[in-house]
Design a protein around this nucleic acid. Structure first.
Lengths: 210, 210
DNA sequence: GTCTATAGGTTGATAGAC
DNA sequence: GTCTATCAACCTATAGAC
């Protein structure tokens, strides 16, 4: 029963777990090789550097997520509802049973200065473009900047939930249960969809007393 | 005209800037003392350790923010509107002209495992409690867990915006302008308020096809 | 309070035997 | 492919002169 995967996979698994738990900078290669019960030099043999290892850890998880996003959006037909679009956007990321993937992705999305060049321009740009198009078709009256802001807010709520998933139950006094991922996705989609349906703000109107 | 503040303030200012720019772990004390044009040993004289310095940098900015949050909530009277409550929650954090404060706070909120013990239980618990009460009075039919989740989503959208503020204009192709903070706050409050007003999800009802 | 000098430890990466 | 041993660079923190 396949007790010992190969060294390369063991390194990826341990790195994913520790990066998600403690962050990328705070996790040393020695921490990783100790957890993986693998020799230190194996990291630089299979991957060239810590930076490349980080990229490999992220790529392994983000590629299937993006694939599922497009699949779900396609499966919703030519005129998907707002809820279907948003579910295709947040669902594949949040609906993962591998507990270490979610915090890892949260760490990644919360550190833009480190990843915007190496990761986001490669993996997130096509996703953002495609989902902006779908949203624009469903909400044609919403200005593009407003649409972009709201997609960003939605991504923020999602990223924050992923970053905090390990401690959320504790800090919420048990009110927030992260383990029921189906309910979580429905909650977030309902919240975001309502925000998207707000008519665009008109600056002149807002000047009245708050 | 007060060209050179004292060493202690210079360290705090430089630390705030570099922590926000590159993160806490990635910023060394040497980076900070070089930026501040101050001797390395001065850090351990004025603060005892890097960890204490981080706490001091955060405390200096979060305390006035929390004070303003309570002031704004009090100023809204005994029955504040949902928009007034949310503005009091997100406004004081986002409405800061010091450009380094916003990314710093974003970094802090995005690293729960590091700060949940040292920072959040001290500074965020009373805020969370007070705003939960206010929200519950305004939305008495919303279950507490649902309310907590939505407050969390709102905080996530806010934290994400702060973390990304330095690169958001670039990655959005110029669509998102972070400099107009008044408009940003209105946008986020409108988005979140709509999400809060969604009736509580009833699990049984959701089982129909999406 | 501010400096120099340095202790003491950890890091990422590599050379070379097997 | 996997190991041991090690390097050079960097880190935080401190002792002690001024």
């Amino acid at each position: 029963m396949n007790e010992k995967p190969d060294t390369k996979s063991r390194i990826l698994d341990s790195a994913e777990k520790l990066f998600g738990l403690n962050g990328f900078e705070a996790t040393s290669l020695r921490d990783i090789t100790a957890e993986a019960q693998v020799n230190l030099a194996a990291v630089n043999y299979h991957f060239q550097s810590k930076e490349s290892l980080i990229d490999a850890v992220i790529a392994r998880r983000i590629e299937p997520v993006n694939r599922r996003r497009f699949e779900m959006l396609d499966a919703a037909g030519p005129h998907p509802s707002l809820e279907q679009i948003l579910t295709a956007f947040v669902g594949p990321l949040l609906d993962q049973d591998l507990s270490s993937v979610v915090p890892l992705m949260g760490r990644m999305m919360s550190d833009p200065t480190q990843f915007v060049e190496r990761v986001f321009k490669k993996y997130l740009t096509p996703v953002s473009r495609r989902f902006q198009e779908a949203l624009h078709e469903e909400l044609p009256d919403l200005p593009r900047s407003e649409l972009m802001w709201r997609l960003f807010f939605t991504g923020g709520a999602m990223a924050h939930t992923m970053s905090w998933s390990q401690v959320l139950s504790e800090v919420s006094g048990g009110l927030c249960d992260v383990t029921d991922r189906g309910a979580l996705i429905e909650r977030l989609v309902a919240f975001a969809a309502a925000g998207f349906r707000v008519p665009a703000l008109e600056p002149a109107v807002m000047k009245g007393k708050g």
